[in-house]
Amino acid sequence: MALLLLLAVLDGLAYAAQVFMVAVGLTLIFGVLRVLNVAHGSFFAIGGYVAASLGAAIAAAGFSSALALPALLLASAIVGALLGPLIERLILARIYDKEQVLQLLVTFALFMILEDVQKLIWGVQPIFQDAPVRSLGQVAVGDIVYTVYQLYLLPGVALAVLVGLMWFLRRTLTGRVIVAVTEDREAATALGIDADRVYLFTFTFGVALAALGGALASPTTSLVPGIGVNMIVLSFAVVATAGLGQIEGAALTALLIGLGRSVAVYFAPEFEVVIPYLIMVAVLLVRPHGLFGRPQLRRV
């Protein structure tokens, strides 16, 4: 019993780390672009697939497996740099002034497209590439032998992303510009801030974060069609529970939901998928704007 609980907590931490990286990109993009990107889960999936392909290529070329870890980072950078600007400039830039329902439909259309792009490139058979996990070995936690990768690396990277992001947003010029645009778009553009560049940068960054989440997840799970959609609804649940636009809140909520889910995996596996949404619905019933969100006065 205690053993299972410990396992659940360790799994939950590792899982929360992945979810957080997707959710934080989603909430950041929403804060700046005011578009909820339904396709965000697909970037998670594609990040995972690209990382797995890179890993396989490295192994096939006979390079050292120590390269497997940097390859994860490289994968997310590739996905961000390729897909981010392409989608933002080509598609999203056309819809910023449209109604919200149309924005949602457009990103939903993107999501439909990207789901099949995955199937066309990587097929529908599960792909599993665990070289990065093996390269770090295992460690004993009490009576449990756990992978170093999941115990230290995943939560460590997530924590680094959180701290780095807070530092970036508060201490650097670009970060402050992003915050300014988030808080008051019109005032910021009136001050001469180039909103287009901020949008492009933020979106690309968000895509790379989601891809990083996917790349880091790829050695711990089989990549199959549908992981993208599971991730988008889950990360939306995190973002909604935390309150749209809340970054630290997203981290705490990811932890809450990640732990809730992994406890369910061990104790009530049928309800694994239900738990995160139960948490979300319960929170939203009590606090309609999320745990950390503030209500906005509706326009008359």
């Binding site: 598609i91 457009v106 939903f108 259309a109 439909m112 497209i113 099949d116 792009v117 199937k119």
Partner: peptide, 20 residues
């Protein structure tokens, strides 16, 4: 079979952007 959603997505984009 593996590109049907993609076709739908592309048509959906086209309709929204050009023939709402």
């Amino acid at each position: 079979p593996d590109a049907w959603q993609m076709v739908l997505g592309a048509v959906l984009l086209g309709i929204i952007l050009f023939a709402s």
